[in-house]
Design a protein around this nucleic acid. Structure first.
Lengths: 247, 247
DNA sequence: CGAACGATTGAGCCTAGTCAACATACGTGG
DNA sequence: CCACGTATGTTGACTAGGCTCAATCGTTCG
């Protein structure tokens, strides 16, 4: 039995090494050579997997680390005032959590696992120190942050100009692209978030999300069964997402 | 006459030095000591002032530099599809323009002067190289980006949860705070942007902006005459911005 | 001084929110 | 393994906030 535990532990350690990580090509150490990757690897902290609903970071907690998602998914929720939560982000494997806490030195929202989720913890002070010697790593940090800003701008546009249908279509095409990029099917996947989460994220009432999903099915764009999604007409969804509904 | 030109040029050079810049305490070199500031100063490029309506950067142009606003103001506009512009940001003195272009190596939107505006151009490759040796500078770059992400999240919440009244109130209180921080009056200022710009930014029709402004005046919250704004009851505006209208 | 643009005001409409009832899935303990 | 309770999802009816269209007024600039 001890043997099993040992093997599991070794497997875990093995898995946690960047060099053998299947996400390495999408993650922070992306551009590093073998030697540098070892240095990077050395500052990463292992973490027990998070269970569904468990917070990775809590809003307003002191900023110490950023995190790379290895498997599973999370949502970022910012509470302000009484019960007025806003879901500001979903995080999928290879994406970075916590970069928005650098400025205020506190995390601006809680980040909560949507399913069983594993992450790599990267203490920021050590990352920063390492980035001093590794220009490629520095560039990758800048790129990650810049990309998130870029994404946020897309989201601003979605919220201020798009109709409910366009928002849902955007949501699906964006998820589809993100899954594809990670080597999963672009057409068939399982949502880890509830309708409520989706609505909150897209600025829509749950009822609206539900209604539009049934309409999308009637239109033959997708099939949805619970959280199982099948995209039938990606091109049409993409057109819809860009506002070519009937204009 | 040559003498005049010479003096002007010297004045310009003088003004453009970080050490004598009144914004130094808000800007990138914030935490640098005198010596380091000189190094930073050396990589900055002077730029002729932009006239109203003139673009500082154009959407999709190759990313080369970031910019610090010295005086005036600008807006960032992202066009997608036909005529579907989204105003994603306003930039005031000491704020950084262009950081969202690092990832794609292109500027994700055009940035256009709203009035006569001067900026410091900072070539990014040289900034990055310098940041290798100056941890304080690096920290400040991270902080700038992180702050912008944070701001974007606030904006997401505004667009997805707030009513038109709350949005306008937020807009005014935010401007007020930004002016105060720069040493200007928090209660009396001139808008450099049109009603159309405000509406576009806040996800509202121009007519709605106009209507709410007149209502705010009737309620004794502000006086507005053209682009001249006087805040009469900042506390009430702040309460409104946070959704304490009648709840 | 006139033209062009920006701002204001009014009337009617439409999208998505709210409230309410019902259906389904989930998971926990007997 | 099933039964129950709770959380999640769906559907319907009604409402309202903000958009559109349209006309008018004001202001800035050539």
């Amino acid at each position: 039995m001890l043997d099993t535990a040992l093997r599991q532990r070794r497997a875990l350690l093995h898995e946690t090494r960047c060099q053998t990580c299947s996400l390495a090509s999408l993650c922070l150490p992306l551009a590093l050579d073998i030697e540098d990757m070892d240095q990077f690897d050395a500052i990463i902290r292992r973490r027990a997997p998070l269970k569904k609903g468990e917070p990775l970071v809590r809003q307003d907690a002191p900023f110490t680390s950023v995190y790379a998602v290895r498997s599973g998914s999370l949502k970022q929720v910012t509470s302000e005032g009484r019960g007025d939560d806003q879901l500001t982000n979903f995080y999928l494997p290879s994406e970075m959590v916590g970069l928005d806490g650098i400025d205020a030195q506190r995390y601006p929202g809680s980040v909560i696992a949507l399913e069983t989720t594993t992450v790599c913890e990267i203490p920021f002070d050590r990352l920063d120190a390492l980035s001093e010697r590794l220009p490629e790593l520095r560039a990758q940090i800048y790129r990650s942050m810049s990309k998130e800003m870029h994404e946020d701008r897309r989201m601003l546009r979605l919220l201020s100009r798009k109709t409910a249908d366009e928002r849902l279509a955007s949501f699906f095409t964006s998820l589809s692209a993100r899954f594809r990029r990670r080597g999963y099917s672009a057409y068939s996947f399982r949502l880890s978030m509830s309708r409520g989460d989706i609505g909150n994220y897209l600025g829509l009432a749950v009822e609206t999300v539900s209604r539009i999903l049934t309409r999308f099915q009637q239109q033959g764009l997708v099939t949805v069964s619970g959280r199982e999604v099948n995209i039938l007409d990606l091109a049409a969804l993409e057109a819809l997402a860009e506002g070519e509904g009937g204009a």
